[in-house]
Amino acid sequence: MNTSIASVLSQAAASAAGGQQYPAGSLYVVATPIGNLADLSLRAIHVLGLVDAVACEDTRQTAVLMRHLGLHKPLLAVHEHNEQSASGPVLARLAAGERVAYVSDAGTPAVSDPGAALVARAVAAGHRVLPIPGASSAVAALSVAGDEGARAFAFVGFLPTKAGERRTALQEVLAHTDTSQVLFEAPHRIVELVALLAELAPQRRITLARELTKQFESIHTAEAAGLPAWLAADAQRQRGEFVLVLHAAAAAVSEGLPAEAQRVLQLLLAELPLKPAVALAAQITGAPRNALYEAGLALKNSG
């Protein structure tokens, strides 16, 4: 960034955020942009300029950010592979009365990113830990999902990579029919994930958010059954980092099923796997197959 621009930005940050207290000997957990530098808050800029050192997931990535801001601070590598051991030098700085910021590569630390272990150790050692909120891809995706039927939301993050574990984990997620569930996925696994969603919950609405805040950002909401074809129609749609919001089911299915359909389904599930039990229950009772499947998932997981 141009030196004069960085100076003006620093002055604006100090004017906007400088009036607050920033106690010494504290750890500041600072959210950074998920793709658009303009999303960095003035308060975050002020804190990064104020602290004595910056602990970070990747020193190379953070060095780029600091150069953009015209800031020069000691950078301490604290990532998923060394977080326990690397917390020691950070705690020593806090004990000496220094202010230390922690940033991950993008977004809010400790949300599917390193940071939780460092925070826990800082708190255990008696130091204050203060959040400097900002960008979060999970919250950004939720805000544009329009899932008005959800009673709450849950952050799931990445599913297991092994096929069997992945299927089981997704079935557990889908059992929460009244809640928005937020998943992350990498580009090389997105086709596999949407195919599994189309198989397990074809009528569940999904918001697929790709490259949030970046130049080629796209947001698409549709029933799971249509997502494989939508992805296949354009190779560009399969590139980038993904956030998926699994909407709450259209109805709390077990509540919407007639008592007799629920009774039949429970009896069949005691003897059969989920799919055959649902198919037979639909034939016997005439209840909607999708509603029976969602109810069956809930019963399986509650058992």
Score class of each variant (00 low, 15 high):
L142G: 09
S136I: 07
L118G: 09
A96H: 07
D105R: 04
A135L: 09
Y102L: 08
G115C: 12
A135D: 10
A141L: 06
S143T: 14
S112M: 07
A96C: 13
I132T: 05
R121E: 15
S104I: 02
G107M: 08
S104D: 07
A101I: 01
A106N: 02
P131Y: 02
S137M: 09
S136N: 12
A125Y: 01
A138T: 07
A110D: 06
S137K: 03
I132L: 04
S137H: 04
G134R: 05
V129R: 08
Y102S: 06
P133T: 09
A140V: 13
V103H: 00
A116L: 13
D113Q: 11
V119K: 01
D113R: 08
V103D: 01
T108A: 12
H127D: 08
L118T: 07
G97K: 08
R121Q: 15
V111W: 03
G97H: 07
R99G: 10
S136W: 04
Y102Q: 06
S143W: 05
A124S: 14
S104G: 05
A122W: 03
V111Q: 08
S104R: 06
R121M: 14
S143Y: 03
V123C: 02
A138K: 03
D105I: 01
A141F: 00
G134T: 11
S143Q: 11
A96D: 14
A101P: 03
I132S: 06
V103M: 02
A117D: 12
A120R: 14
V100A: 06
V111D: 07
D105N: 13
P114K: 05
V100E: 07
G97R: 04
A110S: 14
P109T: 12
A140L: 14
A122F: 03
Y102C: 05
G134I: 12
S104L: 10
D105T: 01
R99T: 10
A141S: 12
V139Q: 09
S112P: 08
L130T: 09
R121L: 15
A110G: 10
A122I: 02
S136F: 00
A141Q: 06
R121P: 00
A117H: 05
G115A: 12
A125M: 05
R99I: 10
R121S: 12
L130C: 10
R121N: 10
D105Y: 00
G126K: 10
A135F: 02
V123G: 01
A96E: 15
L142S: 08
S112A: 15
P133L: 06
E98W: 00
V119D: 03
V129E: 07
V129W: 04
S104P: 02
V119P: 02
A141Y: 01
S136T: 09
A117R: 15
A106T: 06
I132Y: 01
P133R: 07
A101L: 07
V111G: 04
A120P: 00
V103Y: 00
A141R: 00
S137L: 11
S104N: 05
A135T: 08
V119A: 06
G97P: 06
H127S: 03
S112T: 11
A101R: 01
S136A: 13
E98H: 14
P131S: 09
V100K: 04
A124W: 01
A138D: 02
G126V: 10
G126Y: 05
P114S: 11
A124G: 00
V111K: 00
R128S: 15
A116R: 13
A125L: 08
A141D: 06
A117E: 15
A96G: 14
A122H: 01
